[in-house]
Design a protein around this nucleic acid. Structure first.
Lengths: 340, 340
DNA sequence: GAGTAAATTGCAATCGTTTGCGAAATTTAT
DNA sequence: ATAAATTTCGCAAACGATTGCAATTTACTC
């Protein structure tokens, strides 16, 4: 149990009375080695708490079994690292990666290097990259993709790109949210978000289509571009009401955090919810159902999302064809819209 | 710009017309090398998108510049990976580590191996370990510590352990929360959490002390052991009221998520907040101020926490003495307790 | 211009594992 | 018993960067 000196494969082999080659093969259960020899060495390894030096192994095999996960946020003013949805996705990715024998190296886009291919792949820090968020600009992503780096992005799956994108059905999500509000009687519905984002713009399209399908006019003045944070939403709603009064009766929000900010502003002004204004969020973070009123929202299956992203990444690592993937998206109706 | 063949340090050196040794030294700005040579090689490296192979480098230097961060959660029923506070801490740790030139390898405690020293350190996956959460049992932590692994734990800093612990002032947090409720007139205050946790038990001690100091009796029936999730809190409050009616007028919660669960249960039963029951949370997650009523809570400075954890870890890596550290803990008064 | 000190650079070993290929041991066939 | 075919194992060359030490070049002194 005492670790006298660093235990290497060579020493382990010596203990077992075999060569390092057999020891190496035995540890990976290579059938080239006699069964008894294998189990003997494996037992010895366990007994001595041996574990292979990954640095050496990676150098030799040119594989790291590490995947870099990058939170691709433009800067602090935007949807931030504190958004529970993004972090939940990270957690799910960790699970999914572990299940496939990979580890997760976490990074955000404020790192030193903007050249992901170089920094992560050429340097053998990781075998592939998972990017969370297309952001407003896909420059860095495109740059990395040019280097033929194994890469999967969480974003809008309708976007055509040289890399696979996994995402929710944003058009449908926007449509369902809007349709639901319209069916509850709303007539002037704000779209609170930022339609410059690929994902968000798809949702906005769904928002418009829902209006068209129900024969309701779309007022461009209802498309409100804000940072994707609760603070920005809070400020915007306050300001809008101050300027033009309560000129709306529904809000489609681009994330639950945004919805919470809006909700707070409305409640402080004693606007009835859903009586005066109905609100729909997006993501179904855990807090959504704890709100008062509980928040109607669009749920995206993050666990499925993580699994799909990992699958597509493995496809690339093993030279199989890849495809964009759409994850389940469903409307969860709660009190913030349900008139009773 | 086209990458014909894998660019190694040797090839780069050849391009520059020097040996690999000089190239290596030049890239790390070693003053042993003439200034012009240095900048020439650095320029060449930039131009060719060169980046050092970390696998080789780690093997040679025996340093990885990677730190493993372990979310130490007993299982799914407990405070889970979705708790915004924990995830926020992860984000802050990432920032702090990057600032010191380290990268963050994310893991949770559901991984294959329970032997962290082996899995992360001996295998050269990482140079050190940051553990988030003491949990109910410190078995795995102690095991790792026995192997003299560089290790820092987020937990209760009052605990005496063979490894440095960074944590909030839990006693004071519990005290301040309770004292505040008492000052608002509460007389029967629930402690909603799990006093088997080291951190939580300190808070409970503070809770008791506040009672003593104000001359109020402590009813053991007010110490409510639940899983640290909003769902458990919700269920508990519901059940308690069903069983014994509203036999309390204040709640000290062990996390904001727990507080949100309790809040929801109370609101559904039309219990006035803070009129009938005042609630104090813990952590000050971003949603706390968006709640209605906004949530009074104990803030722990996560950014400072992350920095301290990294400092203590570096101390170990560089053989300096280490100490337990306490991060700022303050009471944020909001509407869930403030009578007006 | 010789001699010494200082500034630069290169040689070659090393980190620990993996793996193609050949050698030895064992089994099967003749 | 011997040859042939299998099994089972070990040799030795990578993988790419780092670094103590020695070698070379340059600068300086008298």
């Amino acid at each position: 149990m005492v670790s006298e000196t660093k235990l290497t494969l060579a020493k382990l082999a010596e203990l077992a009375g075999v060569s390092t080659s057999t020891a190496s093969r035995a540890l990976k259960d290579n059938p080239l080695i006699k069964k008894e020899t294998r189990s003997k060495i494996q037992a010895l390894a366990k007994q001595h708490n041996f574990s292979i030096n990954t640095a050496a192994s990676r150098l030799r095999t040119q594989k790291t079994h590490v995947i870099a996960v990058i939170l691709n946020l433009v800067d602090n003013t935007e949807q931030s690292t504190t958004d529970p949805f993004l972090l939940k996705l990270v957690g799910e990715l960790n699970q999914a990666l572990n299940a496939s024998g990979y580890e997760l190296l976490l990074s955000n886009s404020f790192m030193a290097s903007d050249d992901w291919a170089n920094y992560f792949i050429r340097s053998q820090r990781a075998d592939g990259i998972l990017v969370i968020g297309q952001g407003k600009s896909t420059d860095k992503i495109d740059l990395a993709a040019q280097s033929a780096v194994p890469l999967v992005v969480w974003g809008d799956a309708k976007t055509n790109a040289p890399y696979p994108i996994v995402g929710g059905n944003n058009f449908e999500g926007g449509y369902r949210a809007t349709e639901h509000l319209l069916s509850q009687g709303a007539r002037r519905i704000l779209f609170l978000g930022d339609s410059e984002h690929a994902e968000m713009s798809e949702r906005y399209k769904g928002y418009r289509q829902a209006h068209v399908d129900s024969g309701t006019d779309v007022d461009p003045g209802c498309n409100c571009a804000i940072d994707i944070t609760s603070a920005a939403a809070y400020a915007y709603i306050n300001e809008r009401i101050k300027q033009s009064g309560l000129d709306f009766d529904g809000i489609v929000c681009v994330s639950d955090m945004v919805a919470l900010g809006a909700l707070k502003a409305l409640k402080e002004r004693y606007v009835g919810i859903p009586g005066d204004v109905g609100i729909v969020g997006y993501d179904d973070i855990s807090i959504a159902e704890l709100m008062h009123p509980s928040l109607t929202t669009i749920r995206q299956n993050t666990q499925q999302a993580a699994k799909l992203m990992v699958i597509e990444l493995l496809n690339q690592l093993e030279n199989r064809p890849t495809h964009n993937q759409v994850v389940e998206t469903s409307l969860i109706v709660r009190r913030s819209t349900r008139h009773e």
